[in-house]
Design a protein around this nucleic acid. Structure first.
Lengths: 341, 341
DNA sequence: ACGCGAACCAAAAACGTTTACGGAGGTGTC
DNA sequence: GACACCTCCGTAAACGTTTTTGGTTCGCGT
């Protein structure tokens, strides 16, 4: 005898009553509920998830898909750890659990997602590293799985997303550099078709225009989103015939490789090249000279993601009347010395 | 009509046959199997996991528990992502999926694990960041859940584990520094009771002894495993009255904060303080001067973990006749300039 | 023509839970 | 005292799959 049956037998009541007591339904006397709860903890009973899922058609779990591989996600994994924490904190309020779904490097992300959806092991999904056209969005929409994208996409449709303020970061970066007298300002964007690159580039172009500066395509440097990409970026800049005097980065770890490349050439950030980095992170805080970059609270971002996802799930929507969240997440400038200001 | 029923109806065969065809059992004609497989893909049928789990009492998923929070896990950044990839590659061969279970910062890891075990949403578990006495090991043993620990523990019992070679790293670090003439060599160890600190310290003591050097407890520096901890470490060293001339680190990102602290004091790694770092990682590769540290293949480690876990699961043990794996994972020295050699 | 095994498949039970339904007993109302 | 109406609980069906059991068909040898 296992599971709920054992508990019921022990207490000499029916399994139905045990279930109702455990799930907080009204039609159970307080005394019985007490006894059940007590016995459940002493006997270490935890409802079997497979049974629950099968019966209620939901799994009480939310998936967070992450893509493995250094330079594809555009985020380092301290990033995800912080976000997970925020998401968890809102999910646990509703007895939902978070599981991270790491898509292996050698598998197609869309195929992987399809498998996960098919298995039906989560009720809702958070996807990240959205591409310009992201087939996962169509897939999720068609399968009617509640989801939210961490990152915009140009895939049409009315789905929820939250994205970092790449546009604003580019704009404020340019503003800052222009006001310091720079006019040849480069921008680093990812070499793949992840959507954030396009948003960043649009912000870059718009800001230049507003300042009456010409847009020079040769100043758009495409490199992989990794430390090595930053190193390569440095090389590309140093070998240009008409070097920019400043650069804005769109990925948090580019600065590291760039610093190194500059150091090897006897140059220094802030003095020989003005650099504005992207996200403040544990590494950036300890670089010398200190990196000018942008700060955000990963936990708050996670909380917002969790709430927006719940808002899109019928069973929880009333607790979070947010509609379809489409939100740009603000980032706060943290001045350093790398921009020479 | 949903699921396997729909498929069966479409093909005019029974659901049992569909199931058998899909699961590769022998008593299905090749022709029928073909038709089933074909229809399954065109209709996009994927077996409902809840149904399978309930019936077969297993979930076809493996959990990898990670603790959130920067300085508790003793590993960070790209570490887990790399390991995940290796684990996945083993698991997919057996149609198992990997889910990462992030334990929130505000929840007790053991309680979290218990919840996950109770829900029965994975067949096996990988735990990491093992503490000196780790109650999770007792829990898993008692619950008879196949598991493997990434990291040794002093919890008694005959359970599988794979751990990085903290002992060897300490030993070889000391050897190298002693042969370069150093005799006051400090060691950085974590300030919490994560077990790797004890292993590292033991290796440190043993190596000193072998070289006939005295063990000076004041040279054991306890700091949090984070970049900030490295910064604090630097401060602690610089304010000592009888400074060490060299230090070996036991966490990969300590060097970053330490470098910074030295730089602020006008000092430099390799010249003013010999530093041997821990794990080579994308960040360490771009620090100046280049950090002397130790290399390992995360993917191979992940593969070993996956195989050792499968070896402990009855259903897969014949494919991996490894017994109870208890293995120290070797790390290869990568010379840099930070040790002044 | 008959028996017999092999190949294939249909039917039904089982996994552990939730929940719709109904019934027993008690309480209150006229 | 009949009736309605609660409160509490037992019964049983249902979720989607796998697997056991048993049965039908066919081919083949005698």
């Amino acid at each position: 005898m296992k599971g709920i049956r054992r508990l019921a037998q022990e207490l000499n009541i029916s399994i139905g009553t045990v279930s109702r007591a455990l799930n907080g339904r009204a039609d159970v006397s307080d005394e019985t509920r007490q006894r059940v709860l007590e016995a459940a903890t002493t006997m270490g009973y935890v409802p079997n998830q497979a049974g629950r899922s099968l019966r209620q058609g939901s799994t009480n779990a939310i998936g967070f898909m992450i893509e493995l591989g250094a330079d594809i996600n555009g985020n380092s994994d301290t990033f995800f750890m912080g976000v997970f924490d925020g998401v968890q904190s809102v999910l646990t309020r509703h007895h939902l659990d978070l599981v991270a779904l790491p898509c292996p490097t050698d598998e197609n992300p869309t195929a992987y997602l399809q498998r996960m959806i098919g298995r039906r092991l989560v009720d809702g999904l958070i996807i990240s590293a959205t591409h310009r056209k992201d087939p996962r969005i169509d897939l999720l929409t068609k399968a009617r799985i509640p989801f939210i994208a961490l990152g915009r996409s140009q895939t049409p449709g009315d789905y929820p997303w939250i994205d970092l303020d790449f546009d604003g970061v580019a704009r404020r970066g340019i503003d800052r550099l222009v006001s310091a007298g720079h006019s040849r300002i480069a921008a680093a964007v990812p070499s793949n078709d992840i959507n954030l690159g396009f948003v960043f580039l649009d912000g870059y172009k718009a800001a230049l225009k507003r300042h009456g500066l010409p847009y020079d395509p040769s100043l758009v440097m495409r490199v992989p989103s990794s430390e090595l990409g930053g190193y390569q970026l440095g090389h590309d800049i140093l070998t240009m015939e008409n070097r920019p005097t400043a650069i804005i980065l769109n990925y948090e770890l580019l600065a590291l490789g760039l610093y190194r490349q500059l150091a090897e050439a006897g140059l220094q950030a802030g003095r020989d090249l003005a650099i504005i980095g992207f996200r403040e992170n544990p590494v950036s805080r300890f670089m010398s000279p200190r990196l000018t970059c942008f700060r955000l609270s990963l936990r708050d971002l996670g909380i917002a993601l969790g709430e927006a996802l719940l808002a899109s799930m019928p069973a929880y929507a009333d607790a979070y009347p947010l509609g379809t969240v489409q939100r740009v997440w603000p980032m706060e400038l943290v001045p350093g010395e790398s921009d020479g200001l």
